[in-house]
Amino acid sequence: MQQIKNEFLSISVNPVGAELSSIKNLETGVEHLWQGDPEIWASQAPNLFPVIGVLKNGEYIFEGKTYKMPKHGFVRYNENIELKSKTEDELIFELNYSEESSKQYPFKFRFEIGFILKDKSIEVSHRIYNLDDKTIYFSLGGHPAFNAPISVNEVYEDYYLEFDQKLDLRSYLLNEEGLISEKTVGILDNENKIRLKKDLFENDALIFKNIPSKKVSLKSKNSGTVLSVEYKDFKNLGIWAKPGAPYVCIEPWLGIADVEGTDQNLKTKEGMEQLEPGKIFQANYIINVE
């Protein structure tokens, strides 16, 4: 485990998957990141690359050839990620293409993720390098899970998510295979608060495409703002938890899972970024602890 800290926060990152595994407020002693109870959900903050969600039949097609890819891609659980650099306030990890990665993703790339600690904020920075002689296609996203409640005197229903503006939001529903259907359900109608409740995620994640808001705060009706996530570089947002579990995931996404009617062609998959040879793509999100 790699750790850095300042006078306000300490953070830990598991080199396997370069997964954020602790955000501890040193002033209050509160651990803000879900600790990955395997009986409920063993992950904590997986990094999603080069796809988000599931692919139809777990596979896609690129230039006539079929490739298999697990849900959310191959960065999470990946043991080949290396620590590139470490300073007092920054950890940077990288994953380079390999013969093994080429079996499921036929591109020469470098995936780089950094965790920058500044006062009471953690900036999670992503850089994708195209080392190939052809355009590469990818999606990118975060999946951090935050504890709620954080006090023994509170319950899940004391918490809510508040956006920085009033919104009309509809969530896209997933089918039984985890593919995005054409069906939607209304979540907000000129409102800015989603109240947490144990059955909120009975139909899986809330999925918001092209969300206008770029900041959402986790708040308690008793103690106010707990933390916020800013995601100006990401166009979509997922919100999820295992039903009844004491956490909520706030997930900035560039892409989405496959839609029901997909032709499985990677080049035309909704939400894929295109990066030309020799170019670098960057997208960051920020976690602010109150």
Rank of each mutant, 00 (worst) to 15 (best):
E31N: 14
Y77L: 13
A42F: 05
N288I: 10
S101T: 15
G64P: 06
C249G: 04
Q104Y: 10
N14R: 11
N288L: 08
I280D: 01
F163I: 10
E59W: 04
I187T: 08
S139P: 04
D89T: 14
L200N: 04
E19Q: 15
P149E: 10
G186L: 13
S213Q: 12
T87E: 13
K193G: 03
E99V: 11
E176D: 15
D119I: 03
I128C: 02
N175G: 12
Q104N: 14
G278M: 00
A42V: 13
V185F: 09
P144Y: 05
N96W: 05
G141K: 02
K197R: 14
K242H: 12
K193R: 15
L131Y: 00
S10Q: 15
S121L: 02
I4D: 04
K65H: 12
V259G: 11
G58H: 09
K232H: 13
A205M: 07
I61C: 05
G73W: 02
K215I: 08
E79C: 09
Y172P: 00
L266K: 01
F163K: 08
E88H: 11
P144N: 11
E191G: 13
L196P: 00
L91W: 04
I52L: 10
P46A: 07
K183G: 06
K86G: 05
K134H: 10
N222Q: 12
P243I: 09
T225Q: 14
E63K: 14
V16S: 12
Y60Q: 05
F8L: 14
H143N: 09
K86N: 10
K108F: 00
D89Q: 13
K108Q: 05
S85L: 11
L237V: 07
D37Q: 09
Y159E: 07
I194Y: 01
L20W: 04
S10K: 13
I4Y: 07
T262I: 10
D89H: 12
R76P: 03
N14V: 09
E251F: 06
N203W: 06
G278Q: 00
N192W: 02
L237Q: 06
K84T: 10
E90P: 04
I11W: 01
F234T: 02
N6R: 08
D158E: 11
L20R: 06
V124F: 00
Q35H: 12
L48S: 05
L9A: 10
S101L: 10
L254K: 05
D158A: 08
E251G: 05
A257I: 02
D199W: 04
K5E: 15
S12T: 14
E251L: 06
I287P: 00
N222L: 13
H32L: 15
D189S: 15
